[in-house]
Structure formats: structure tokens, C-alpha cells
């Protein structure tokens, strides 16, 4: 482990450093030594055909799976670097990497505001006794939680429906609520799993703007999985491409667009080539 941190290239300039990550499910190698870096202020996209192992990669990074091999290193802007392989996902979130889900996972029977307030859980400390006594510290934390949550709802444009049940929101709004909830955990890196899935073109465009705005005004870096190529090419600084668990290309949107391997992966091989 010490060796890894020594060989690290410019630790100041990397937030998330994934090295040779491998994940086996029995005999199936879902992710095969994939390496990936995210630097501060970057939007990095991870693309690939269905079943390429992108979500598995995400799950390994966020602690839902324990990777078979490889290292996931984080270098938070404040705080020390550490290897987070096999950390529980709540610890990963506390360190500062929050995620959203491909199939929306909101707390359906809680209000929109409460959903965001849950995100503040790991940044507040009220215990059972504290909640019962409701002392000044608890009250202050509660007030701050409500305020921060309202702020976030304002940023994603959901403040009008703050008291609605999450299940009653339209699809696009649910996606934005998931992002707001993840942002409530004060992350330095936001991992978005197909945020534009199932959205219409207008919604995608709004999302596009939202993501860029999060990076620029909130100073949160973003790693996203996405199938919507227009969105990916528009906003991402760098792109990684996966196929069958392997990383087949990386580079700027321009490079990726012209990479023959990527074209092959997406469109299949030309029969007379």
C-alpha cells in the first residue's frame, strides 16, 4: 500500500485514482484491470455498450462491491489520501464521494425535502438522546439541515415541490432530486450513473446545464456513466470507454469520436474491412 502511494503521479492533482481494478463474479470477470483518474474540476465520462461493466465499476468504487483486485485511492482536497477498497458505502460517502443510481432509488414515501435532508445525515451528529432532549446543538443542526436542503432544492429547481412525496414527482424531477440528495452529502466527487436515462431532449439539455453548473459553481468534480452521446461529447473533459469489462480507449471527446476501436465497439466490425 505504501508503494502505491509513492508511485502515485502528482497526488495534488488527482481526486480519485483507480488502478487495475478487477471484479470477478465467480468465473465471470465483469471488470478487468481498469484504471481511471479524476482530477479536480473535471467532468469525466465512462461510456461503453450495454453490459460493459460500467455500473459494476461504479459499485466497486462506491463500496457496494469489494473489488477482487486493484486499488481505489482517494485524495480528498482536505484530509489524507487513502485506499478505500472494501469500505462500506456509507464510509465512502462520508469521505466525500456521493453517487446516484441508474434505476432511480429515492425514498418514495418521504417528502422531497426529507430526501435531501437524509443526505445531510453523515454531516450531522444528533444521537437518539440528543433528538429526545432537543438541545440547542440539535436545534441548530436541524435548522442548518433544513436550510442547506432548501438551498440545494433551489439549485436543482425543485423548491416548489419540497413538501410533495418523492414518488409523485415526474421522472426528470426525480433524477434531479437524486442529484440534489447526493450533493447534500458535501462531496468532492459526484458519481452519476446514467443521469439522462429516459429523459426527453429538453430534460437532457437542462441536465447538461445542471451538471456543468455543479462543476463550475459548487466545485464538485463529476464522474458519469452515460449512453446519451450528445450529452457526453458536450460536457465531458475526458472520456473512458469500456467493452466486455476492459478499458479500450481514453482521451478527449474528439479523440474518442475518431477512435476506430470505439467505433467498432459501438457499431460492430465492417464486414469487408
Amino acid at each position: 500500500m505504501l508503494e502505491v502511494s509513492k508511485t502515485m503521479a502528482e497526488p495534488d492533482n488527482i481526486l480519485l485514482e483507480v488502478k487495475d481494478l478487477t471484479m470477478d463474479f465467480g468465473g465471470l470477470r465483469a471488470v478487468d484491470s481498469v484504471s481511471l483518474n479524476v482530477c479536480p474540476g473535471e467532468i469525466v465520462a465512462l461510456i461503453g455498450p450495454n453490459g460493459a461493466g460500467k455500473t459494476t465499476f461504479f459499485n466497486c468504487v462506491t463500496g457496494m462491491y469489494k473489488p477482487t483486485n486493484g486499488a481505489v485511492m482517494v485524495h480528498p482536497p482536505e484530509g489524507k489520501s487513502q485506499k478505500i477498497n472494501g469500505f462500506k458505502s456509507n464510509r465512502v460517502t462520508t469521505i466525500g464521494m456521493a453517487r446516484t443510481f441508474q434505476n432511480i432509488r429515492l425514498f418514495k414515501n418521504m417528502t422531497v425535502l426529507e430526501n435531501v435532508m437524509i443526505g445531510r445525515h453523515c454531516r450531522t451528529t444528533t444521537s437518539i438522546i440528543g433528538a429526545i432532549l432537543r438541545g440547542s446543538k440539535t436545534r441548530r443542526q436541524e435548522r442548518e439541515t433544513v436550510e442547506i436542503s432548501y438551498d440545494l432544492l433551489e439549485k436543482v429547481g425543485l423548491v416548489d415541490v419540497a413538501d410533495e412525496f418523492a414518488k409523485n414527482l415526474p421522472y426528470g424531477a426525480q433524477r434531479r432530486l437524486e442529484i440534489a440528495r447526493a450533493m447534500a452529502t458535501d462531496p468532492f466527487l459526484l458519481l452519476l450513473d446514467e443521469p439522462a436515462a429516459g429523459m426527453n431532449p429538453q430534460e437532457t439539455k437542462a441536465l447538461d446545464e445542471l451538471i456543468v453548473r455543479i462543476r463550475d459553481t459548487e466545485k464538485i468534480s463529476i464522474l458519469l456513466i452515460e449512453h446519451d452521446m450528445k450529452l457526453v461529447m458536450n460536457i465531458s473533459d475526458r472520456i473512458y470507454v469500456m467493452e466486455y469489462g476492459k478499458e479500450i480507449a481514453q482521451g478527449s471527446p474528439m479523440d474518442i469520436r475518431n477512435d476506430p476501436k470505439v467505433i467498432k465497439a459501438y457499431l460492430g466490425e465492417d464486414s469487408d474491412a
Binding site: K88, F101, M110
Partner: peptide, 23 residues
């Protein structure tokens, strides 16, 4: 309270709840 909300979140979706930093 914070505790009660965490309980409810656990009821609603355990995976999401843990991913949002709840132990």
C-alpha cells in the same frame, strides 16, 4: 429528527440509504 429520518430511509430503500452515508 435525524435518527427518525434515517430509520424511514432505511425502510424505503436500504441500498440508497447506505449510499447516502447512513450507517
Amino acid at each position: 429528527s435525524r435518527v427518525g429520518r434515517a430509520w424511514m430511509a432505511l425502510r424505503e430503500d436500504e441500498i440508497a440509504c447506505v449510499a447516502m452515508g447512513v450507517d
